[in-house]
Write a protein that binds this DNA or RNA. Sequence first.
DNA 1: AACTGGGCTAAAA
DNA 2: CTTTTAGCCCAGT
Length: 116
Amino acid sequence: MNTNYHQIWQTVQLIPKGKVASYGQIADLAGLPNRARLVGKALGFVPDNGWNNKAVPWYRVINSQGKISLPIGSDAFERQKSLLQDEQVVVIGARIKLAEFQWQPDLAELLFQLKF
DNA sequence: AACTGGGCTAAAA
DNA sequence: CTTTTAGCCCAGT
């Protein structure tokens, strides 16, 4: 697989349970500025069934407006919403409440984990 | 070598 | 609050 995808998945794994981050934020932290769309694409490849959905918590990534980016009412949307709610994240409609952008990574720790 | 369409964004209306 | 607009970048085709 693409190196960029690994960089992205790796960064997404750093989002703590019960918190969320935006596509752009993940792109920046992964060292890929201005590539939010790539993050969306990369997350689309993460299997959401069984064991793997906890290895890479794709559902903790939302858009810059604080909302779930998937089409409202789609299966994928409902899946993301319930996975977030399982972690006590409040979701009203597509909008995330209480957990918006509250993930503040420790930069030193982040860089360490990314093996920079 | 184009061309296209995305799980995007910031700013403006 | 919402929708639009105009940038944006690149993997896949």
